[in-house]
């Protein structure tokens, strides 16, 4: 419990709540989208650079099991939403599947927030752990689009054939994932230490606090949209991040027993499972499942899912890791 109180005062959560509060008070503060995108780029590039520089020496065979788990969890989250949220009365099946896809996909900002907490608590994690991001993100989006098309096919007998490669390509081209992969490549293949130490690393926490403020304001402004769809989306968005995170924590623990996956790595796996995509996922789903209502999945993810994943999820998994390991 004291952990939650400390977390409450941490810059990450304090700025998130601050953003919600000033938006609720009707602030005229506007932070433009380009700044938001730039911050996400800076954070993910920094995470990628650090990972890239330290995996030069790492044994990447260790990554195979966690990466497989990430793929399974990403697909599993969408399947769970198919038999829970998408089955509920007043929820259109395609909206439920799209929401599951977004919650299976990964949020770069939530990942960055978790890394700041892990570093400030001096919890070690495998430096390649952030690179698990695409292994969960892409299968979840693909699965959601495939399931939605299967559903339309079953209902109407007609469906367009799903082309999977364009979905993968679009996900990899998304701003967060491009920056992360670029950072890994630069860290791995070049010597970016000087610019990393003098520029990217010192700015990391400060930029994250601005990002959290933006996420808080965005969360509040999207509540209006969430109100227009079934209440089940709000319920799902509050419960699902923690359920997904705990499932991933369980699988991560299994990997810990089998291959010595570190506690910090298990926390990162749980965080990316509990997070829901906020930049790259929504446009991919809008194009892949045009009939699903974006107010349902974006409202659920941004206004409830992300704040829960950051404010409750991250401290929960860290507390659990300290209790279990």
């Amino acid at each position: 419990m004291s952990r939650f109180l400390i977390q409450f005062q941490s810059p990450t959560l304090a700025f998130l709540i601050g953003g919600i509060v000033i938006a609720a008070l009707g602030t005229r503060l506007v932070i433009s989208e380009s700044i938001y995108k730039f911050i996400v780029f800076m954070l993910l590039l920094r995470v990628g650079l650090e990972g890239g520089m330290s995996i030069r020496e790492a044994n990447l065979a260790e990554m195979i099991l966690p990466a497989l788990l990430a793929v399974m969890i990403g697909i599993g989250i969408v399947l769970i939403s198919r038999v829970t949220l998408a089955m509920l009365p007043a929820v259109r099946t395609e909206d439920g599947i799209a929401t599951g896809g977004l919650f299976g996909a990964v949020s770069g900002s939530t990942l960055a927030a978790a890394i700041v907490v892990l570093e400030s608590e001096a919890i070690d994690y495998e430096q390649w752990a952030p690179a698990l991001y695409p292994f969960m993100d892409i299968p979840a989006l693909v699965m959601a689009i495939v399931l939605a098309n299967l559903y339309f096919k079953g209902r109407e007998g007609t469906a367009e054939k799903v082309r999977i490669w364009p979905i993968i390509k679009e996900s990899l081209q998304g701003s967060a994932l491009s920056a992360l992969l670029l950072g890994i490549a630069l860290g791995l293949l070049t010597r970016p230490e000087s610019v990393y130490e003098s520029f990217y690393d010192p700015l990391f926490r400060g930029l994250l606090s601005v990002l959290m403020l933006i996420m808080g304001m965005e969360a509040y402004s999207r509540i209006q949209e969430l109100r227009r769809v079934a209440h089940w989306f709000a319920v799902y968005a509050a419960v699902a991040p923690l359920v997904h995170g705990l499932i991933a924590f369980g699988f991560g623990y299994l990997a810990h027993v089998l291959t010595g996956f570190s506690p910090g790595g298990v926390v990162i796996l749980a965080v990316i499972a509990g997070s829901s995509s906020d930049i790259s996922g929504p446009p991919t789903l809008r194009a892949g499942i045009p009939r699903a209502n974006p107010s349902a999945y974006v409202g659920a993810s941004t206004s409830v899912g992300t704040p829960v994943a950051i404010a409750v999820g991250i401290p929960l998994y860290i507390a659990l890791a300290e209790a279990v390991f």
Binding site: A23, I31, S32, Y36, P283, P294, V298
Partner: peptide
């Protein structure tokens, strides 16, 4: 379909 702003107040202007 919905109200769509061109930039404000929501930041994530995917739609």
């Amino acid at each position: 379909h919905n109200t769509r702003s061109s930039g404000e107040p929501s930041v994530l202007d995917h739609f």
